[in-house]
């Protein structure tokens, strides 16, 4: 196994100060958490600014958790679940899809860029996709800069 470096997703300089994005990732136990583990087993490298919180199903992610994370200063929140039709709990991820869609609208109304909240389907076999998702989302959050809660845009 060889370690693979991320193409980008490192720290960005915003103004004078360096900006280290804070990202919360909710992973379902069966697919996306396993995909994150597989990324590790495959030694796929990615930026270290995210923290994973494991839940049994992505449908457990109460919109309040997402709002709480933003309130506490998260610059981005990623919710990852099983692919449609792959849900270990049959159809939980469909509920997640609806909730996140609504939540993004809500965030926008609060003056948040909805790009700060991302939903992604990552299977247990998709270590690469986990890596790619983290790299790209870190880039997105870097571009958006610090959360408006912290005085960013």
């Amino acid at each position: 196994m060889s370690s693979t470096a991320p193409e980008t997703g490192g720290e960005h300089k915003v103004g004078e100060e360096s900006f280290e994005p804070r990202i919360i990732v909710f992973c379902c136990n069966w697919c996306s958490y396993a995909g994150a583990d597989l990324a590790g087993v495959s030694r796929l490298q990615m930026p270290p600014h995210f923290r994973v919180i494991r839940v049994m199903c992505s449908a457990r992610v109460d919109p309040e958790f997402v709002l709480r994370a933003f309130q506490k200063g998260a610059d981005g929140v990623l919710v990852a679940g099983c692919h449609p039709a792959d849900c270990h709990y049959i159809g939980g991820n469909y509920r997640t899809r609806r909730r996140i869609a609504l939540l993004r609208i809500l965030l926008q109304q609060f003056g948040f860029d909805p790009g700060r909240l991302k939903l992604e389907w990552i299977s247990a076999g998709e270590g690469e996709k986990f890596q790619k998702t983290i790299v790209e989302f870190t880039d997105t959050v870097n571009e958006l800069g610090p959360s408006p809660m912290k005085g960013g845009d």
């Binding site: 804070r22 958790f65 709480r68 506490k72």
Partner: peptide
């Protein structure tokens, strides 16, 4: 539980604000 997950969120973001 909600408070358990919230505690993790808060701990992850401790001091950020």
């Amino acid at each position: 539980k909600d408070e358990q997950i919230v505690a993790m969120i808060d701990a992850a973001l401790e001091g950020v604000m």
